[in-house]
Design a protein around this nucleic acid. Structure first.
Length: 392
DNA sequence: AAAGCGCACAACCGCACGATA
DNA sequence: TTATCGTGCGGTTGTGCGCTT
């Protein structure tokens, strides 16, 4: 038996708000505030609405300084960077975009940005209803081109792929697309050529990891962060133009490191460049940033995925840990996730959290001289991550 | 002309969590 | 300690509009 409903659903109005209702709610809150009790508020002002509905209406539509309309490229960039790092935590992302609501961002992501960045169609309602979701099909639901080059173990691979959530998959895809990894993987497709010039992973995650997550403290850093991001990303105009000169020297110093590809970072071989300018987080902010789940690798580099570390680890291990060939024959060992939990560092990491665990894994991985991630393994990853729709 | 479809946006739903009695 | 309540959040659904066939 579930919990009692927050209101009597039979007596509350549902559906779109009328201008009169809006005016009533707005006038009352502007004059009296919410009184700290949304549930009681509709009764006070004679609205036949659920308190939650009032809250949503106020926060998403009536509240002052709400920005509606098109998102700027800068805003898109911030959304994308944060989504890669922390996933669908829309409220945190919204905290970085003054005037935007989590609902707005969520809708924008689901309807426009995802398609724009990943170049895929949203599943239709009918397709979902018919259980023929093209997302799920691509994500491991039985797509015909999954692991087309990975060799045997198809059933197991399919199971592992099914375990990878759509969210995690999307983030992998974004990682790859936004860093031009198609090129790094030897993929020269129109899609790769069309990839926008987003900041490299290390920069993005460093910036994000420098941000506090608390909604109160984030408001302090928004401008700095945006300033910083824009300067880094090379986006033209606005704050970016004014920031460009200041960050130019830093960008130059970063350029070689920024060119390091993703796998290098994931192996912990990426050397973290010097602390970027503008934003010098306080100790508190640094501590808070740990919650952002960016993964600080051994050696100072960044290569984490956020809250799905285990999931992503499993996925990557299933692909590269089983290479066996290179690593095993040369006496190197790639620990499995259970092994990580067993080993001293891993045990500690398991108690502490996924970030450290992932870091421990990354530090102990040794595939050898950067030559292991090639050929069919990359093809497998590429086939899988890209759903086979590219590079053909 | 109209049915089908996709899209964008608003709103709803249910769960999780913290506060409090 | 436990139950209840209010709030916040993310996922999902409803609805209206415009385009296509």
């Amino acid at each position: 038996m579930g919990r009692a409903p927050c209101c009597d659903k039979a007596s509350v109005k549902k559906g779109p708000w009328s201008p009169e209702e809006d005016a009533k709610l707005k006038a009352y809150i502007e004059e009296n505030g919410t009184g700290g009790n949304w549930i009681a508020l509709p009764q006070k002002i004679g609205l036949k609405r659920c308190g939650k509905s009032c809250r949503l209406r106020w926060l998403n539509y009536l509240r002052p300084n709400i920005k509606h309309g098109d998102f700027t490229e800068e805003e898109e960039h911030i959304i994308c960077s944060l989504y890669i790092s922390i996933g669908s935590r829309w409220s945190i992302i919204a905290a970085q975009l003054p005037g935007r609501t989590d609902n707005d961002i969520k809708n924008y992501w689901n309807t426009k940005l995802k398609k724009k960045l990943l170049g895929k169609r949203a599943p239709s309602r009918r397709a979902r209803a018919a259980n023929q979701d093209p997302y799920l099909a691509a994500a491991g639901g039985g797509g015909s081109n999954m692991c087309s080059t990975s060799g045997g173990g198809g059933a197991m691979a399919a199971t592992q792929q099914q375990a990878l959530s759509a969210s995690a998959l999307e983030r992998i895809q974004l990682h790859m697309r936004l860093q031009g990894l198609y090129g790094a993987f030897g993929c020269t497709t129109a899609a790769a050529d069309a990839a926008p010039h987003w900041p490299k992973l290390a920069e993005t995650l460093m910036q994000v990891s420098s941000l506090p997550t608390d909604a109160v403290t984030t408001t302090v850093s928004v401008e700095q962060h945006q300033h910083h991001l824009v300067g880094q990303s090379g986006l033209a105009g606005g704050a970016g133009a004014t920031a460009a000169a200041v960050v130019e020297a830093e960008q130059q110093s970063l350029s070689s490191a920024a060119g390091a590809n993703y796998m290098a970072a994931a192996q912990g071989s990426f050397e973290r460049p010097g602390k970027l300018g503008f934003y010098s987080p306080s100790a508190e902010a640094e501590a808070a940033s740990a919650e952002m789940t960016s993964c600080q690798m051994v050696g100072g580099g960044y290569g984490g995925f956020g809250p799905h570390h285990d999931e992503l680890y499993d996925f990557l291990y299933s692909k590269y840990g089983s290479l066996g060939g290179v690593a095993a024959t040369e006496g190197r060992h790639i620990p499995t996730l259970p092994e990580l939990h067993q080993c001293p560092d891993g045990a500690a990491a398991a108690a502490v959290g996924a970030d450290e665990k992932f870091s421990a894994w990354a530090a102990s991985c040794d595939y050898g001289a950067g030559q292991q991630l090639q050929g069919s393994s990359i093809g497998s990853l590429q086939d899988y991550v890209l759903g086979g729709g590219y590079g053909q």
